[in-house]
């Protein structure tokens, strides 16, 4: 009994300590961000491995999610004779929720896990420590460019996801199910608000990008420097990112769309 309470206490202390280290890590990373603008080649390189390499996955997933939305949405709407609203349903679902959330989940799986593994391996092969001894701060040189790249890539990827998804919904709705294309687009335009829907969606994706990249980089930096440790850190990145994305999505949605 005492032992259980003790281990619970130890777990709690450990968690708080990690949280503290995580925040310290974030502050040091943020402090390193301005420097990157003097060395854009570092950023470009990371935009490639974090952003460009995720594009294919995002486009394909976005297209299919949009197509499924078109199909499911049509079947529901047609019962109310409101199939003209298909465009609205597809665009609002994507722009407000599915675009930011699903692309962030995919991003965590594709780019986040890769970042953790990369940093973790750099740590276990003493590359980070070697840099420190060469008087190069690895947080500025290695972590900060990756962080900024994640922050920039995420909203762009989410926008691509939504755009392709809406196109997928249109393909199914108009091409397959015969919804009038004029109605599809005009209804969508009337009911999708630039500020309330699109911009809020973009803000969500920026927040998700921030959190996922932070988690991924910290897990790598804080990993036990063994193959097992790096493996576990990679898993943690995906799991913790998923929790963070879904939890934050709820909070952000309540804040943004709460008052109707």
């Amino acid at each position: 009994m005492i032992e259980t309470i003790r281990s619970l206490g130890r777990w709690g202390l450990g968690t708080f300590e990690r949280l503290g280290r995580g925040h310290l890590f974030l502050f040091r990373t943020l402090a390193g961000v301005p420097e990157i603008f003097l060395r854009l080649s570092l950023l470009v390189h990371q935009l490639f491995s974090v952003g460009v390499l995720s594009v294919f996955l995002i486009l394909i997933s976005g297209l299919f999610v949009g197509m499924v939305l078109g199909l499911q949405g049509y079947n529901t709407l047609v019962d109310f004779g409101a199939e003209e609203s298909l465009g609205v349903l597809v665009s609002l679902s994507l722009v407000r929720e599915l675009g930011p959330v699903v692309s962030a989940l995919l991003f965590a799986g594709r780019a986040g896990s890769a970042l953790t593994a990369e940093i973790g391996l750099m740590k276990s092969t003493e590359q980070l420590s070697g840099m420190e001894m060469m008087a190069v701060d690895p947080i500025h040189r290695v972590i900060a460019p990756r962080f900024l790249a994640g922050l920039i890539s995420m909203p762009l990827l989410a926008a691509l996801f939504s755009a392709v998804g809406i196109f997928g919904g249109f393909l199914v709705g108009h091409g397959l199910l015969g919804v009038d294309d004029g109605a599809f687009w005009s209804q969508m335009q009337v009911k999708t608000d630039w500020y309330d829907d699109v911009l809020n969606g973009v803000i969500k994706s920026i927040v998700f990008g921030f959190v996922v990249t932070w988690i991924a980089l910290f897990e790598g930096y804080d990993a036990t420097p063994t193959s097992e440790g790096v493996g576990r850190a990679t898993t943690r990145t995906v799991v913790h990112s998923a929790f963070a994305i879904l939890g934050l999505d709820f909070v952000l949605t309540a804040l943004m769309f709460g008052e109707g």
Partner: peptide
């Protein structure tokens, strides 16, 4: 600044891969 004047050869090499 001090480390710039120290060279260190790591046991593992620690090359950037």
């Amino acid at each position: 600044e001090l480390r710039k004047r120290m060279g260190m050869l790591f046991q593992s090499g620690a090359l950037l891969t």
